[in-house]
């Protein structure tokens, strides 16, 4: 065995525990749901104990199902509004501004980090109180002090509200990554550009931004993936309602699998999500021209 072969073997050995654990408890269940998606498996009724193979029937039904398309659309706006725009813009702004030697820098930093540490059930619970209808609810009362009449936030603007709440939860992770990315940009380059007469905006646009592109890519990939898979806090906050206005894909799968008890159909939704995310992953890699 050559030295290189031995090293390769050792590296594989190091990775083995991860492969086993992720393979058994993440990849295998995902593959199993491909199998389930080809059956009429259910949680109640005869199909619970004796599922039948139904071929692609679940998929055919899926593409004709308005509820499914609705949940894809809701998920799209949710990811775009919160992960791609809301968290990213506010996180980047915070990261850029907190590079200044401001007086309350550490306090502000801590406050922004706080929501990120809030467990999903608590996040749902807090925001129910914030956004409840009626003039006693927290937000309405605060706005009432400014003379703004009460709004039924979760009833009238449900999708916007879950975007607001998820942005709230995620500013910190965007800020952390962007701070790190910015710190890797050599100060001398920016200074040189400034001395050459570039405006701060130009420095940011033409020097800083290209240099933090790899960080942005990592952020976009990870936050898109984790946002698509969100379930817990929307479940605690709106359970997908009113109607199906906030029925993101995770809630839709839950409703199909555990409210309508149709495991096979719910699994088909999960499989389609997986395929779509592969496409999104490819788009990111191509569009941002970054290699792993």
């Amino acid at each position: 065995m050559t030295y290189h072969q031995r090293t390769a073997r050792q590296l594989q050995l190091l990775l083995l525990p991860c492969v086993l654990l992720v393979g058994a408890l993440v990849v295998y269940p995902a593959l199993y749901s491909i199998y389930l998606s080809l059956t009429n498996a259910s949680l109640v009724g005869v199909a619970a104990t004796h599922p039948r193979f139904v071929g692609t029937r679940n998929y055919v039904r899926l593409f004709a199902d308005g509820g499914f398309w609705n949940s894809l659309a809701v998920t799209f706006w949710f990811v775009l509004g919160s992960a791609v725009i809301g968290q990213f813009v506010l996180g980047l702004a915070a990261a850029v501004l907190l590079r200044r030697p401001l007086r309350f820098k550490h306090l502000i930093n801590s406050i922004i980090l706080l929501p990120n540490a809030v467990p999903e059930v608590v996040a749902g619970f807090i925001w129910i109180s914030m956004l409840a209808g009626g003039d006693h609810a927290t937000l309405n009362r605060l706005l009432g002090a400014l003379g703004i009449p009460p709004v039924r936030w979760l009833q009238d603007f449900p999708l916007a509200m879950i975007i607001v709440v998820n942005t709230w939860r995620g500013i910190a992770s965007a800020m952390i990554l962007m701070t790190a990315g910015l710190s890797a940009v050599p100060g001398e380059i920016r200074e040189a550009a400034r001395i050459d007469g570039a405006s701060p905006r130009q420095v940011f646009r033409f020097i800083t931004l290209p240099l933090i592109m790899p960080t942005i890519f990592l952020y976009m990939l990870v936050s898109t993936v984790t946002t698509i898979s969100i379930f817990g806090f929307i479940y605690a906050l709106t359970r997908g309602g009113p109607g199906n206005a906030t029925e993101i894909i995770g809630i839709y799968i839950y409703n199909q699998s555990f409210t309508a008890f149709q495991l096979g159909y719910g699994s088909a939704v999960a499989v389609v999500t997986l395929i779509l995310s592969l496409a999104i992953g490819l788009v990111y890699v191509r569009a941002l021209k970054v290699e792993v």
Binding site: V26, V27, P29, A30, S33, V225, T226, I228, S229, I230, F231, G232, I249, G250, I253, Y254, S257, F258, G266, S267, V269, A270, T273, L274, S277, L278, G281
Partner: peptide, 9 residues
């Protein structure tokens, strides 16, 4: 990417 599968599934 396999992490996009929401937990209920």
């Amino acid at each position: 990417l396999v992490r996009v599968v929401p937990p209920p599934a």
